[in-house]
Amino acid sequence: MPQPLSVAVFICLEWQPNAGGHVKCWERFAEAASHYPDRVDLTIYFLGEKPQTLAVAANVRYQLLPPQFSTHSLEIMRQGAGMTDVAPFHRGLRRYLPQHQVFHITDTFSFAETVRRFCRQHHRPLLSSIHTDLPLLTRTYSREIIWRMSGRSWGREFWRWLWLEKLQVDQWFGRRAERKLAGFMRASDRVLVSRQQDADWLLTFLPPEQVAWFQRGIDRDRFHPRFRNPQWLREEYHLPAVPSLFLSVGWMPVKMCSCWRGQLKS
């Protein structure tokens, strides 16, 4: 009987119960993978305070590793998107990699750089997926950091004008992030996207067969009409007892296992 495919996914963000959307997205992937124990053995790597393995199912787990250089190490680097690791390499991660067959990166930070080097050296399949507009995020937080740096200094308006308007340092960081992202995409055997603008950008330098789409769908058991409870909803959110219209849109990945297995075969 064939052994389950060992897949590793790398999320360079902190896992915690109240984490944001990117982490929650991969929690849903983990739930989906847990239904296929004979097909996939999934490890999702997150940042955490200490090395720790959290079992999700018999074939699914979260592996937490401390960052090498956290954005929370310096007050000026703290930002609303959550903690990440800006070190150029993650030494602790390297020893976990040989056990896996397929590697899936989701950003360009320390986990991704470590995995990219490993896959290049050992000729392992590498997938990437684009979840965030990293160049835009970089420009946004570069501006925020510059505002913090000049916020209490003498002549702060001059320094903001110099760095942001004259030298356009935030734009330079954004272009640098785009070049870095493109390098990771070129190093990948397959890139998964969920937005047309990401696909259009990738197709300017990648062949069409290297770009694929996320297969997303609604979990019809989780979002079933039998869970409707208008009375509870009104009481919970203090809504008036008059007709109201609510629109709820949710999504859940449903075909990642076939994508990972197909990448190994290719």
Rank of each mutant, 00 (worst) to 15 (best):
Q101I: 09
V102P: 01
V102L: 04
V102H: 00
F103T: 04
H104D: 09
H104F: 08
I105W: 03
D107R: 00
D107A: 00
D107L: 01
D107K: 00
T108Y: 05
F109P: 00
F109W: 08
S110H: 04
F111E: 00
A112W: 00
E113G: 01
E113H: 03
E113T: 01
T114Q: 00
T114P: 00
R116H: 10
R117Q: 04
R117W: 02
R117D: 04
F118C: 04
C119M: 03
R120W: 15
Q121K: 14
H123M: 12
R124K: 15
R124L: 09
R124P: 03
P125H: 08
L126H: 07
L127I: 13
L127M: 14
S128A: 12
S129A: 14
S129T: 12
S129I: 10
S129P: 11
I130D: 01
H131W: 05
H131T: 06
H131E: 04
H131Y: 06
T132Y: 06
L134N: 01
L134K: 01
L134C: 04
L134P: 03
P135A: 03
P135R: 01
P135V: 02
L136F: 13
L136C: 10
L137G: 02
T138Y: 01
R139E: 11
T140R: 05
T140F: 05
Y141H: 13
Y141G: 05
R143M: 07
E144W: 12
I145S: 03
R148W: 11
R148L: 14
R148F: 13
M149L: 15
M149Q: 10
S150N: 10
S150E: 04
G151W: 08
R152L: 13
R152N: 12
R152K: 11
S153T: 12
W154I: 15
G155Q: 09
G155S: 08
G155E: 11
G155N: 06
R156E: 15
E157S: 14
E157H: 09
E157P: 05
F158V: 11
W159K: 07
R160N: 10
R160Q: 13
W161T: 10
W161C: 11
L162G: 02
L162F: 12
W163K: 09
L164I: 11
E165C: 14
E165T: 13
K166E: 11
K166H: 14
L167D: 08
Q168C: 09
V169N: 09
V169Y: 05
D170H: 07
D170A: 09
D170S: 05
W172Y: 14
W172R: 15
R175N: 10
R176C: 02
R176G: 00
A177H: 12
E178K: 08
E178P: 03
E178R: 07
E178M: 08
R179C: 14
R179T: 12
K180D: 05
K180S: 04
K180H: 07
L181M: 09
L181G: 01
L181C: 04
A182H: 11
A182I: 08
A182N: 10
G183C: 10
G183Y: 07
G183R: 10
M185E: 06
